[in-house]
Amino acid sequence: MAGNSRRPGAVRRTGSKKGPQVGTGGHGRKALRGKGPTPKAEDRPYHPAGKRKAAAQKRSQARPKNRGPRSAGGYEVVAGRNAVVEALRAGLPVRALYLASAADADGRTREVLQLAAEAGAPVHQATRADLDALTGGSAHQGVAIEVPAYRYADPEDLLTSATTEGRTPLILALDGVTDPRNLGATLRSAGAFGADGVVVPARRAAGVTVAAWKVSAGAAARVPVARATNLVRTLEAYKKAGCFVVGLDGDGATAIGDLELATEPLVLVLGSEGKGLSRLVRQTCDLVAAIPIASAVESLNAGTAIGIALYEVARRRSA
């Protein structure tokens, strides 16, 4: 009915809480403010990628961390199938075996699993990224183990072991070699030609690290490495014990193939590629031998040079 004030549309409401407004007065400024770029999928907690990232971080925190080479009371990582097999064959106590889930199940991998089971070592499935982090980015071939920190021998032990077993001592000494890969190559050659061990300085020299283990192809488990506080004094002690000390350098007066001292108790000393033998070490040597090479080549890799020298010594000893 016309004029009926009870109709809902006919009632004027008064007393609005907001009251009349002119302009926005800044009220819409907050609404116009953006929330920033969209986070990456792995940074969103409820996204599948975020859940995978959180799980990986949890595994990393739960896993015993590699404390680095020679950490007191710590553990080290040996990576690569050959190196791991040799370490297991040598009976080294293994704290854990890490195997990539996508690793090829070849003969070496099966042998690794068998030896680890016989040793009672726990086996952990790991991603390639986990192994990359564990080994410091070295080539691991999908397998790595944690073993106790490497125990260096005493330089005197190398000589005692050879004389006790009735062998003519053959010891290698590295003077200023800082690349662990060269140490690994030296250990591999030492194992191939029956050397009694390798002496390295305690400071400013390569030690038995993951890289050395890898390049040695497991020889680090068989060939002892001794650390010398003072290499010159160690060489002098070897001389007093009846050994001849022969340095290897490109300007040596004697070719390594003509070395008549090869059949005697011998210590071969190799310097770094850049500087060669240090002055004091060179003065301590009974003589310096050279490996003849083409004039177009300036020098040989340290690992290659020691392999050639050991071959020539072994050839003369077997003649």
Rank of each mutant, 00 (worst) to 15 (best):
G242K: 09
L99R: 10
V123R: 14
A54H: 01
D251E: 13
G250V: 09
A294T: 03
L113A: 14
P8D: 10
R222T: 11
L32T: 15
L115Q: 11
H47T: 09
G276L: 11
P45V: 02
G74M: 04
L235G: 06
V232D: 10
V11G: 09
R203P: 04
R44H: 05
V78L: 00
A237E: 14
K17E: 14
H124R: 12
R233D: 15
P155V: 07
S299N: 08
N230P: 03
N4F: 04
C285Y: 05
G274W: 01
A83W: 00
L113Y: 07
A129I: 05
A173F: 08
D154P: 03
V200P: 04
A185C: 05
P93Y: 01
G25A: 13
I145T: 02
L235Q: 08
I306G: 00
A192C: 10
A253Q: 11
G23E: 09
Y152T: 03
G250A: 08
V78A: 00
E76H: 06
A121V: 04
V232E: 11
L131V: 03
T284R: 13
D104T: 15
S71A: 15
R233Q: 15
Y98R: 07
L159V: 06
L310A: 05
A117W: 09
R151G: 14
L300G: 04
A162I: 07
